[in-house]
Design a protein around this nucleic acid. Structure first.
Lengths: 189, 189
DNA sequence: GTCTATAAAGCGATAGAC
DNA sequence: GTCTATCGCTTTATAGAC
């Protein structure tokens, strides 16, 4: 049996858990140590620049997942309506129906965001732009597509906030389902 | 001329700035000291239980403002449609058109929320319930009102997240304006 | 590659002078 | 009511043994 952790990328899921749970500042190295099961020595071996590099690695990993599974299909799939429906399903699955927060969203709100400004902006810009493209490809007016995607992307983030605030993960699925319907109705017109 | 700060409530705006900027954990006492211009001695004089009491005082203040200016009118105003339109205007003004974050939203996302669970939940529950009541009073079906208010309240929070993420405060006004229209159209049916 | 030990700085909170 | 000094603890980061 091989070792559980022998590459940088093996630690990323545990790092993601730590940052999602506590945000950037409150995710101390002792928290990260517990979550990953690795001592400081090992952590600094994989991430010589420390905590910021750890967070950045997680963000890159999340961004790559969305690019592959959500953004690219929205931009390229021939069946644009199907890609949009798929986006909602994949998104609901990714966030474990509202039990997981969005790390980009968490990092966007407070001062720590200055460190990750570029990555955060890029992630949301890609999401909105990809959704806009899918809507346009399916016959939606360009200006209206821009507006709808802005509302839908912020609606998804807001649903994650409301889930945590109300301690009710079901909110996420409900809000997503209704946004899906709203976009589909728009495409029928 | 009287002193600028001689009561607990005089420090609250500065405390709110500190917590909005950094969240709870990263708003250290030295940050708070700078923002308020008060030494630790004075701060502990006004808030003997320390940082948590400071944050709680800010939340109470914000909650009271919304109760008076937004929630109560939604529940009680005779002109329910007008109260809803007013909610959006007051909300946009309160959050300085997206330049200010929602402290309840910030505290909802990470582990620190455990400390303020009750207050956070109560704030959002009141908002959603008050908006639902206004929609129903104006002729909206009860189930649909429940759904619309969930979507609108989360839409507002999400718009604040997206503003920060994209570093574009204008997003807030746009999203709010469209939600206002969506609710108004619903009432016309 | 992983650990322990340790450094230097910052943390929340308290005490006591004024 | 406000300050400074200080406590004990935790923080990030490094060094060096293994």
């Amino acid at each position: 049996m091989t070792k559980l952790i022998n590459e940088r990328c093996d630690v990323i899921p545990a790092l993601a858990r730590a940052f999602r749970k506590h945000g950037f500042d409150a995710a101390s190295l002792s928290v990260i140590t517990k979550e990953t099961g690795l001592g400081k020595g090992s952590l600094y071996h994989f991430f010589p620049e420390g905590k910021e590099e750890m967070a950045r690695a997680v963000l890159t990993e999340v961004d790559t997942w969305f690019e592959l599974n959500v953004f690219a299909p929205l931009r390229e799939e021939e069946d644009a309506g199907g890609a949009i429906a798929d986006m909602f399903d994949k998104t609901e699955a990714y966030f474990y129906s509202g039990q997981r927060v969005c790390l980009f969203g968490v990092l966007a709100l407070v001062e720590a965001r200055e460190r990750f400004k570029g990555a955060v902006r890029c992630y949301f810009a890609k999401w909105q732009s990809a959704l806009t493209q899918a809507l346009v490809r399916d016959g939606c007016d360009a200006d209206e597509a821009e507006e709808l995607s802005e509302d839908a992307v912020s609606g998804i983030q807001g649903a994650l906030v409301l889930c945590r605030a109300m301690d009710d993960p079901q909110i996420f699925g409900r809000v997503l389902r209704r946004w899906k319907e709203r976009l589909m109705i728009e495409l029928d017109n």
